[in-house]
């Protein structure tokens, strides 16, 4: 669904393979999605579902070897950024596409002050003079809610708490006013009360700055609170994509359904027994010629063994699912 608005980021048929001694690992298989201006796309999946690898490969952050982008097209600003050279890519990173990583302690350099690290992209990409960069850096820290911003520019990362460090990371990602912000599990390492602070901050910043955000997480609660659209990944593939309300109200893929049932809530009714998704997450050794969820799926049938389902539209506009169960052809076969 396009709404007539051109997407800022358009990913088509992306395939990423890792070459290891034990053979190839198919980490990302034919992933396609788009990101529209100003929207927040939530990406949900377990570890190994390919959500981080997809986003890292977009901006060339995967070390190659072992990673190899087999095919695909990533349109951003009118060109395919999988084909641009390293220098051009370095210009895009930070300037046009911001990135927030999961663990702020390991992604901040401990031997430089926070001010230096925020000023680095400003001086490099925007060509600001030191004094102008310092003023802008203080503004940014202020924007993300760090009190006494100007003085704290001189502090080192270890002098900040976990939540504060994550705010610094957000300030760095926002430094050059990027069009797209990719946030990889930005609140997973934080406590719930600090997570609530950061989520409020992001909601607030979206209104002020209006950039498009890709938010990677495994926490369905976080997604429900902030996303406009959700993409569910499993075994390196997109299994379902929908507007947030449609996904939670009418999940179509058996994995999405099971995932929603397996998570307990702090509010509402308490289920006496937790629903379980049996089995283990898939190993991505072989090329996926069948549905990756078939071993754990209670709806699996013969066709799931033979053919990897393609995504097809269902229900509400913008809702699609990659599943053979309740597909029109299968239903006909079952009833006819």
């Amino acid at each position: 669904m396009n709404d007539g608005v051109a997407p800022v980021l358009d990913v088509r048929d992306l395939k990423v393979v890792f070459r290891t001694r034990g053979g190839e690992v198919h980490a990302v298989n034919s992933v396609s999605f788009d990101l529209r201006p100003g929207e927040l796309l939530g990406v949900v999946g377990e570890s190994g579902s390919g959500k981080s690898v997809t986003m890292m490969s977009l901006i060339g952050l995967l070390p190659s070897p072992p990673a190899e982008i087999r095919s695909g097209q990533v349109m951003f600003g009118g060109r395919d950024i999988l084909k641009v050279n390293a220098r051009e890519l370095r210009r895009l990173r930070g300037r046009e596409i911001g990135f927030i990583f999961q663990d702020p302690m390991t992604s901040l350099n401990p031997v430089f002050t926070v001010g230096f690290q925020i000023m680095e992209p400003l001086r490099r990409h925007m060509g600001l003079k030191p004094e102008a960069a310092r003023t802008r850096a203080a503004e940014l820290l202020d924007l993300v809610g760090i009190p006494d911003a100007r003085r704290r520019l001189k502090d080192f990362p270890h002098q900040f708490s976990g939540g504060m460090r994550q705010r610094v990371m957000i300030a760095m990602a926002l430094a050059c006013d990027p069009k797209v912000l990719i946030a990889d599990e930005p609140t997973t390492a934080l406590d719930v009360t600090i997570q609530a602070q950061i989520l409020e901050l992001v909601k607030d910043l979206r209104q002020k700055l209006g950039m498009a955000i890709v938010w990677i997480t495994h926490d369905l609660g976080v997604i429900a609170g902030i996303a406009d659209r959700v993409m569910v990944m499993y075994g390196g593939q997109v299994v379902e994509q929908a507007p947030v309300r449609a996904l939670f109200a009418d999940p179509r893929h058996p994995y999405t359904r099971a995932l929603l049932e397996t998570v307990p809530s702090v509010r509402g009714e308490r289920a006496p027994k937790l629903k379980v998704i049996e089995g283990q997450p898939p190993l991505l050794g072989a090329h996926p010629s069948a549905c990756p969820f078939r071993f754990r799926c209670d709806k699996a049938h013969g066709l799931c063994e033979q053919e990897n389902p393609r995504r097809r539209p269902v229900g509400a506009p913008g809702h699609d699912v990659a599943c053979h169960w309740d597909a029109p052809a299968v239903r006909e076969a079952a009833h006819g």
Binding site: A196, A224, G225, R245, F248, A249, S265
Partner: peptide, 19 residues
């Protein structure tokens, strides 16, 4: 109140106490 709820309808109604 800080725990996010996996349900967009109730999630947006919850009154958060932000510490």
């Amino acid at each position: 109140s800080a725990v996010p709820d996996p349900d967009p309808a109730s999630e947006r109604k919850v009154e958060r106490i932000i510490l």
